[in-house]
Every structure is written in structure tokens, then in C-alpha cells.
Simulated scan of single mutants.
Amino acid sequence: MIPPAPEVSDSRTFRRAFADLQDGLYSSELWLHLGWTDIKQRYRRSLLGPLWITVATGVTAIAMGLLYGTLFGFSIKEFLPYVILGLIFWNFIQNSILEGAVVFSTNEGLIKQLPAPISVHVYRVVWRQLIIFAHNIVIFLVVVAVFRPPITWSALLFFPAIALFVLNAIWVTIVFGILSTRFRDISQLTATVVQLAFFMTPIIWRLGPEVGNKVGSRARLVELNPLYHYIEITRGPLLGEHVAFYHWGIVMACTVVGCAAALLVLRNYRSRVAYWV
């Protein structure tokens, strides 16, 4: 009698990876609650509560805008909104990377005790960043009321741009979160690289036509930094500036590659996270 063939586990399949993402998304009540609880816990017993997010970012952005605007000889009316938006979107990118890299290691107890898809913790991080972003964007609305920058219909491009930010935050959290759980040095390396990237991205400095004419082809080196294109597709429309299509193309290409990498990592290592933490 021929023995039955052993059952083949499908734990390392793309079907299970998609199922984890889908089940986590359906558990919205859980990650919405956890993300909002994180914000409240951070500012527990403070006088302003979560409004400290707005105050801290606003003071930093205004101080840097006034300082570097004066040093570089830029018009404060034009340069201050530029710096404020740059810092707001940079904070979203930076926090998504840094907090995403430690999302599983910092939630060890919850992962081991709560039988939930690991994508719940991913959505929790992204939701938390959206809450912080909503607090920070108020600063720009105040600047709009004061300086009245030229806002056109192109500002509506902000919505697809922020949707791309969310997709990228998801894949970044999955990839760096899972790999950093296995190799703890990755989170330290990521923090160093992100800090360096801040100075290499035009956030508190501008790459205008004058600079481009003086520096020549060397100015094009900035475009090798993918984060530059992410900032451009969000900040440009809100400032009434034309954003070249190649910026969108590069961001969408990075999004597709990143999502593919996230699915691959999720398929291969999703089931091991609970053991690695």
C-alpha cells in the first residue's frame, strides 16, 4: 500500500503574504486604536497633549526657515513655506523608516501574546505617522493664511502624492522591520543613513536655477537621491510650482520595486518574526 503524500505547507507562499496584508487591513479597529493610543501615551499628562507635535515642528521649521533664509539671502515669504513643507514631509519619511525598523522588536510582548497578522503592526506605524502628519500640516495652513503663497489647482496632486507616501511607508516598514528584527544592526545603520540623507536632500536649502547655472552638471547629482523626488511631488504642488513628470515616474518606480520586495520578504520571513523578537 502506497502511503499518502505528505502535506506541503503553504506558509511561504505569496498567497499567505497577501492574506496577512488583507487580514491586517480588516483588523482596522485594532491598529487604529493602537496607533492613537501610541500618540496619547507619548504626551500623557502634558498640558497641550498631542498639540506638542505641532508646536515642536512649527518652532523648528520657523527657526530654520528664518535662519537659512537670512543666510542664503532668500525671501522669507517664499522660503519659509518651502522649509516648513520640506520638514513636514521629511518627518513623515524619516519616522516611517526609523519607527518601521523597530516596529516588531518594540512590540515583542504584543506579537507573542496577540494572535494577529504581523501587518497589524505595520498599519499601526503608518496610521501613527498620518496622525502626526495631520497635526503638522496645520502649520502650513497657518503659513498660507499669513503669507498667501500662490496655490493653484495643481495642489490637488497632493492627494495622489500622499497616497504614494502611505504605500511606501507600508513597504518600508515591512522590509526594514522584518530584516531589522533578524539583524539588529540594520536599525542602527538605518538611523545613520537617514541622518545623512537629510543633509543631502533639498529641505533647508534650495537647488534653484541660479545654483544650477553655477554648479553645472554637479547639481544633477542631487537627482540621484530618490528622497529628493518624494519631496518634490508633495511640496511642489502645494507651493504652486510645476513638478516635472519624471519625478512622479521615479517615485512610482520605487514604489513598485519596494512593494515587490516587501511581498518577497513577507512571504519568506513572516512566520519567523515571532521567533526572532
Rank of each mutant, 00 (worst) to 15 (best):
E7M: 13
V8L: 14
V8Q: 14
S9I: 10
S11Q: 14
T13C: 05
T13A: 04
D20G: 06
Y26M: 14
E29V: 01
E29H: 06
L30S: 04
L30N: 04
W31M: 02
L32D: 04
H33I: 03
L34A: 04
T37M: 11
R42V: 00
R44T: 10
T57C: 11
T60M: 14
I62V: 15
M64E: 12
G65H: 02
L67F: 15
F72Y: 10
S75V: 02
E78D: 11
F79Y: 13
Y82M: 03
I84N: 13
L85G: 09
I97P: 01
S105L: 13
T106H: 07
K112T: 06
Q113C: 11
P115G: 08
Y123Q: 06
R124D: 05
L130H: 02
I131M: 09
V143L: 12
V146R: 06
R148F: 13
S154E: 12
L157D: 03
I162H: 00
A163F: 14
L164W: 09
T173A: 09
I174L: 15
R184W: 00
D185Y: 01
S187Y: 06
V193I: 14
V194T: 11
F198M: 02
I204K: 00
R206T: 08
L207M: 13
P209N: 09
P209S: 11
N213D: 13
K214N: 11
V215E: 00
R220W: 01
V222Y: 10
V222S: 14
Y230H: 12
H242T: 14
F245T: 13
A253S: 13
C254D: 05
T255L: 11
T255E: 08
T255M: 13
L264T: 11
V265E: 10
R272D: 15
R272P: 09
